[in-house]
Computed example of a mutant assay.
Amino acid sequence: MKMAFGFLAAILVASLSPFAHASDPSPLQDFCVAVNDSVAAVFVNGKICKNPNMVVAEDFFFPGLNKPGNTSNQVGSMVTPVNVNQLPGLNTLGISLARIDFAPYGINPPHTHPRASEILLVVEGTLYVGFVTSNPANPTMKNKLFTKYLYPGDVFVFPQGLIHFQFNVGKTNALAFAGLSSQNPGVITIANAVFGSNPPINPDVLAKAFQVEKNVIDYLQAQFWWNIN
């Protein structure tokens, strides 16, 4: 029953998304199956179309979202994306999908999707989720945090580009599906980008920005920042 609900949830998340074309341009033909970047002759903002005469049903198919992601990592979660890089038939359609697995007390760390809003549906477990608004116009005010505890069947929306997170507050595994309003939403995990960039950001810059001693930044930059996306 849970597995059937999971598949239904995935379809529902994608089909009910009211912002399916909020980010990506609308298609100008029935479909534009993506050509693998490694064999593309030029680089464009998106993907080059496969010859329509060569398109097959498999170009619109992705198996395996019934398989849990490996959550045995530092943050205790794993994202299984289904965007244009995994499913070429999504090219120009303005939507994508992801399965998110959580170990007990696992977290999908604060991150943003620069090109998509996200709608999340919880299938199993209890998640504490939230997002933070962009900088307010009034410099005396702080960024506002919106949070909610979600249970199976609950839905929550994260607006495009805003920092958000999901945390499994239960003692059992949790599972959620996310629909996103882009074929290639992108993801920026805040801690990874700030403290784990290559080459590293000058620690003097970060010490000043975070108003801490440089040795704190040195410690953070020396850590291994796990990428689950």
Rank of each mutant, 00 (worst) to 15 (best):
M1K: 07
K2Q: 13
M3K: 06
A4R: 06
I11H: 09
L16V: 08
P18H: 07
S23K: 00
S23M: 03
S23H: 04
P27K: 02
P27V: 05
L28H: 13
D30A: 12
N36F: 13
S38D: 14
S38P: 00
V39F: 10
A40V: 11
A40F: 06
A41D: 10
V44A: 14
V44E: 15
K47Q: 09
I48K: 07
N51V: 00
N53S: 13
F61G: 01
F62W: 05
F62S: 01
K67N: 14
P68H: 05
T71S: 12
T71Y: 08
N73K: 06
S77Y: 03
V79Q: 06
V82H: 05
N83Q: 08
L87P: 03
P88G: 11
L90A: 04
L93A: 07
G94D: 06
R99Q: 15
D101W: 01
D101P: 08
D101A: 05
F102D: 09
F102R: 02
Y105L: 14
G106H: 02
H111M: 05
A116M: 06
A116C: 09
I119P: 01
V122L: 04
V123E: 01
V123I: 11
E124A: 05
T126F: 07
V129L: 02
S134L: 09
N138A: 04
K144I: 15
K144N: 11
L145P: 00
T147S: 14
K148D: 00
L150D: 01
Y151Q: 11
Y151H: 13
F156G: 02
V157K: 08
V157N: 02
F165Q: 02
V169H: 12
V169Q: 12
V169K: 14
K171N: 14
T172F: 00
F177A: 10
A178T: 15
L180E: 05
L180N: 01
L180D: 02
L180F: 10
S181K: 02
S182W: 05
Q183F: 01
P185K: 10
P185L: 11
G186K: 09
G186W: 11
I188R: 11
I190R: 00
I190A: 14
F195G: 07
G196S: 04
P199S: 12
P200A: 14
P203N: 07
L206Y: 03
A207I: 04
A207L: 08
A209K: 09
A209G: 10
F210M: 10
F210D: 11
V212E: 14
E213G: 12
E213H: 12
K214V: 15
V216C: 09
I217V: 15
I217L: 06
L220K: 08
Q223E: 15
W225C: 00
W225L: 10
W225Y: 12
W226C: 11
